[in-house]
Every structure is written in structure tokens, then in C-alpha cells.
């Protein structure tokens, strides 16, 4: 096995181009488990831990450019303002030890349907900045997941950053699991309200082969909010509309039965989370106390 240790981003891209079989390692919280258990024996590891800029975030033309290797600890501590759903998801990951190492770049690299960052990134309308020596492309996050644990990266590409517009309204992330820490989501849901755009976006986790949006639910809710003048007078949408939104969110799922939960339970729980996050975001929109 080789262990490549690029000191700069340019060196990392050159190394990945020269060794497309090299497996990047960031926090190692997914990859080391596979190595420890002999499930994977890559010919070459590419350590991204020396590249300082990868572990930093900054604002660029209003958007947050989140380096692929920023640990969850930092996201939770520093980005709750512009990226509330992602910061909330970051707080829900694993344990302090895992959050000190785990990264959004690694979450995307693994592309598990249960990855906690994914619903938040979908709801926030993020784009993945994929780079290689050939150049950089921006992949909308909903096009990034191509199958269970598969993503849109080419063999010579690395994730440089994720670009996320700051929240244009309240956002929520919610996750179902057996305890409050250290759980892979049974299912998860994120909701983002955009006041200026009069739009609604969602993300569903762990209830389909890939993380995905509930587009019909989004369109339905946006229609109700617009027609009822809710954005202007801030009255909550009627309970029947909230119920329908939840039904449509559940209908967007394509879950399976597994050790963590049955398909039927997942559908039900996604509906509950959809209603709950709608309730919380709208309460926040009205300027009231958050129920959370």
C-alpha cells in the first residue's frame, strides 16, 4: 500500500490524476472502519489532512464555501447562522470524537443514503465543487448521489468544497434513531423556507436508495403558502395542508426493511418529521418561540 501525503491542493489533484485508484482519506471515520475490518484494501491512500485550505470555510459572493475537510465540530460551532439545517445535522452526527474528525466531504464521498449532511444540503440547495487537473465543475447536490453509496465523482476527481447559499428563512433538520447519540439515522428530514424566493425545499435521508428531495411536497406547500397569502400575514398553513405535505413527503420515499427499521415505519416517520419540521420552521418564521 502507498500512503500519499500531498501538502497542497494542486499536489493532491496531481496525485489523484497519477493514481486514480488512490482512496482519499479525510477524517477516516468511514474509511478506517473498512480498513480495520479488512473490508477494503486500497492500493493507495491519499491523505487530505495536510491541506489547510480544505479544512477552512469562507464567504464567497454571499454563499458559504465550505472546505471538504471542515470537521462537523466546526460546522456545528460556527455555521448555525448561515446554515442552520447543516449545523443541526452536524450536531446530530455520532459523538464528540466522531464530530472532531468527520467531514462533509467524507459524508459525500461515502454517499450513504443515511448520511446526515445530505438532507440538509438538499434542502439548502447546495452544490458540490468537484475538481481534477482537468478543471472544476459544480454538481448540484441532488445530482451528486447516483445510487446507494455511489456518487458522481470521476476517478480523477476530488471534492474541494461545498457551496451553500445562506438560509433565506428558517431551516430545520430532524432525525429518528434509537438514542440521542451515535446512531445511524433510521430516517431523517430537512426543510428550508426561503422567504424572498417564496419557495420551500426538502431533503429526505435513509428512506430511499439515495438521499432525495420530496419535490411534489415542496411544490404543494409552496402553492398553499402563496395562494393563502401566508408569507405575508405569517398565519400557519391549515392543518389539512400540513397533513397533505406530510403525505407527499412520505410518498417521495422508496424505503427498504432493514435492521434499523421497516419500510412502513420509515414512511410513517418521514411524514411525522415533515410535519414537525414544518411546524418548527413556521413557528420560527412567525418570530415565535421555537418548539425544539
Amino acid at each position: 500500500m502507498d500512503f500519499l501525503r500531498p501538502a497542497t491542493w494542486e499536489e493532491a489533484l496531481a496525485a489523484k490524476a497519477a493514481h486514480p485508484e488512490a482512496v482519499p482519506i479525510a477524517g477516516g471515520t468511514d474509511l478506517m472502519v473498512e480498513l480495520n475490518f479488512g473490508r477494503r484494501r486500497p492500493a493507495c491512500l491519499l491523505d487530505l489532512g495536510r491541506i489547510g485550505e480544505l479544512a477552512r470555510w469562507h464567504r464567497e459572493k454571499g454563499a458559504v464555501r465550505l472546505g471538504a475537510a471542515v470537521p462537523y465540530r466546526e460546522i456545528a460551532a460556527a455555521l448555525g447562522g448561515p446554515l442552520p439545517a447543516l449545523a443541526h445535522a452536524a450536531r446530530a452526527v455520532g459523538s464528540p470524537q466522531i464530530r472532531n474528525r468527520g467531514t462533509v466531504g467524507g459524508n459525500l464521498g461515502t454517499a450513504s443514503p443515511a448520511g446526515d449532511a445530505h438532507p440538509a444540503l438538499l434542502a439548502a440547495g447546495a452544490a458540490v465543487e468537484a475538481a481534477s487537473v482537468r478543471g472544476t465543475r459544480l454538481i448540484p447536490v441532488e445530482e451528486f448521489f447516483t445510487g446507494p453509496r455511489r456518487n458522481a465523482l470521476a476517478a480523477d476527481e476530488l471534492i474541494r468544497a461545498v457551496r451553500i447559499d445562506p438560509a433565506g428563512g428558517p431551516q430545520e433538520f430532524a432525525k429518528v434513531g434509537t438514542r440521542n447519540a451515535m446512531v445511524v439515522a433510521v430516517c431523517s428530514f430537512a426543510l428550508a423556507l426561503d422567504e424572498a424566493g417564496r419557495s420551500v425545499r426538502t431533503g429526505i435521508g435513509s428512506a430511499a436508495p439515495t438521499p432525495r428531495r420530496a419535490r411534489e411536497a415542496e411544490e404543494f406547500l409552496a402553492g398553499v403558502l402563496a395562494e393563502g397569502g401566508h408569507w405575508e400575514d405569517r398565519r400557519p398553513p391549515p392543518p389539512s395542508a400540513a397533513r397533505r405535505f406530510a403525505e407527499l413527503a412520505a410518498a417521495a420515499c422508496a424505503p427498504i426493511d432493514d435492521v434499523r427499521g421497516s419500510a412502513a415505519y420509515r414512511r410513517h416517520a418521514v411524514a411525522v418529521l415533515a410535519r414537525r419540521t414544518l411546524d418548527r420552521t413556521w413557528t420560527a418564521y412567525r418570530g415565535g418561540e421555537r418548539c425544539a
Binding site: 482519506i25 477524517g27 478506517m32 491523505d47 474528525r101
Partner: peptide, 15 residues
Amino acid sequence: LDGEPVCACLVAAGQ
């Protein structure tokens, strides 16, 4: 590791 608690089992030695 550099001051932050981590699981040593998940850090590659070279890191």
C-alpha cells in the same frame, strides 16, 4: 490529537 479528543482507531497512523 492536536488537543481534540478523537478515536485513535479511526486515525490512520500516517495522518
